[in-house]
Simulated scan of single mutants.
Amino acid sequence: MTPDELKIVRRAYAKQITAAVRIIDDRVETAFAEVPREDFLGPGPWPIFRMRKAYVPTRAADPVYLYTDDIVGIIPERHINNGQPSLHAFLLSQAATRAGEHLVHVGAGAGYYSAIMANLAASSGKVTAIEFQPELAAQAKANLTPYRNVSVVQGDGSSVAFDSADVIYVNAGANRPADIWLDRLNDGGRLVLPLTTDLGFTSSNWSNMQPSRGSVPRDA
């Protein structure tokens, strides 16, 4: 598939995932259309998550297979994934990110959704991508090199320091907001995180997705 053909596929993917969650947000759609998912997932074929925690490889290493509303394994043996695009599109739309804002992405994984946020923040804004796993933080730093408004920090997202933020977007389970998230959130800022229990994720986590109280899996 040629680069021009892939751009058409990516645009169709962006329209499909935003339509799937019934959002009309041109900026979110444009961000998903412009950021190449394959740049963040390594060489194919890629492991696609299916039911019962099983992964099925794509038929070939053609990036076209990544432009579906599917979860893709980053480290599948540890169930660390690049999460479902429509879920992230919905939550990013609800966060109402504006150009010029500072976004903090806790649990950045390999950096795909950090790049989406960089597009939303625009050149006048910035993104701080925090990843606990050293190998993933290194991948994210390399993958995000073209995005000049993104800095990558390796560390514990519940305690590592960062500048005050307009949006804090968490991709790791928590049974309460970390103190630093509340302390560093600007007036009028938005906090999006998955509230979990001792039982982990349950159906209620998914059915009660809301900005400032929402649910995002450890699917970065």
Results as ranks from 00 to 15, higher is better:
residue 139 Q to G: 04
residue 78 R to E: 06
residue 109 G to E: 09
residue 60 A to S: 15
residue 63 P to N: 05
residue 84 Q to W: 01
residue 86 S to Q: 04
residue 73 G to H: 04
residue 103 L to G: 07
residue 97 T to L: 04
residue 66 L to F: 01
residue 82 N to R: 10
residue 56 V to W: 02
residue 65 Y to C: 02
residue 137 A to D: 12
residue 130 I to F: 07
residue 107 G to V: 12
residue 71 I to H: 00
residue 66 L to R: 03
residue 99 A to E: 13
residue 133 Q to M: 15
residue 75 I to L: 15
residue 59 R to H: 11
residue 142 A to R: 14
residue 80 I to Q: 10
residue 57 P to G: 02
residue 128 T to N: 07
residue 141 K to A: 07
residue 61 A to V: 05
residue 131 E to I: 13
residue 131 E to P: 12
residue 70 D to H: 12
residue 106 V to H: 03
residue 99 A to C: 06
residue 96 A to S: 06
residue 77 E to K: 09
residue 81 N to L: 00
residue 93 S to L: 11
residue 142 A to G: 00
residue 137 A to S: 15
residue 129 A to D: 05
residue 90 F to C: 05
residue 75 I to C: 11
residue 114 S to C: 11
residue 95 A to D: 09
residue 80 I to D: 12
residue 138 A to N: 08
residue 60 A to I: 14
residue 101 E to F: 04
residue 88 H to E: 11
residue 132 F to A: 08
residue 113 Y to T: 09
residue 112 Y to H: 14
residue 69 D to N: 15
residue 131 E to G: 12
residue 127 V to W: 03
residue 80 I to P: 03
residue 129 A to W: 04
residue 137 A to W: 10
residue 70 D to L: 02
residue 97 T to C: 03
residue 89 A to W: 10
residue 113 Y to I: 09
residue 121 A to V: 11
residue 141 K to H: 10
residue 135 E to F: 02
residue 105 H to R: 00
residue 93 S to T: 07
residue 107 G to K: 14
residue 69 D to W: 01
residue 106 V to Q: 02
residue 72 V to L: 03
residue 99 A to V: 10
residue 132 F to Y: 13
residue 83 G to Q: 01
residue 98 R to C: 13
residue 68 T to S: 06
residue 69 D to Y: 07
residue 96 A to R: 13
residue 116 I to C: 07
residue 140 A to Q: 03
residue 137 A to M: 15
residue 99 A to K: 08
residue 140 A to E: 01
residue 61 A to H: 07
residue 83 G to P: 04
residue 71 I to V: 15
residue 98 R to E: 13
residue 72 V to T: 15
residue 96 A to K: 11
residue 118 A to G: 00
residue 104 V to A: 11
residue 110 A to W: 07
residue 83 G to A: 04
residue 100 G to L: 14
residue 110 A to V: 03
residue 93 S to R: 14
residue 97 T to Q: 02
residue 103 L to S: 14
residue 89 A to S: 00
residue 94 Q to K: 04
residue 84 Q to F: 00
residue 121 A to I: 03
residue 69 D to I: 02
residue 81 N to P: 00
residue 61 A to C: 10
residue 65 Y to F: 13
residue 101 E to Q: 11
residue 125 G to N: 00
residue 121 A to K: 01
residue 130 I to D: 08
residue 59 R to S: 12
residue 102 H to L: 15
residue 95 A to M: 05
residue 140 A to R: 02
residue 78 R to K: 15
residue 110 A to Q: 09
residue 91 L to R: 06
residue 69 D to H: 05
residue 100 G to Q: 11
residue 104 V to L: 15
residue 82 N to A: 13
residue 134 P to M: 08
residue 131 E to K: 11
residue 83 G to M: 00
residue 108 A to C: 09
residue 74 I to C: 13
residue 122 A to S: 02
residue 125 G to S: 09
residue 126 K to H: 08
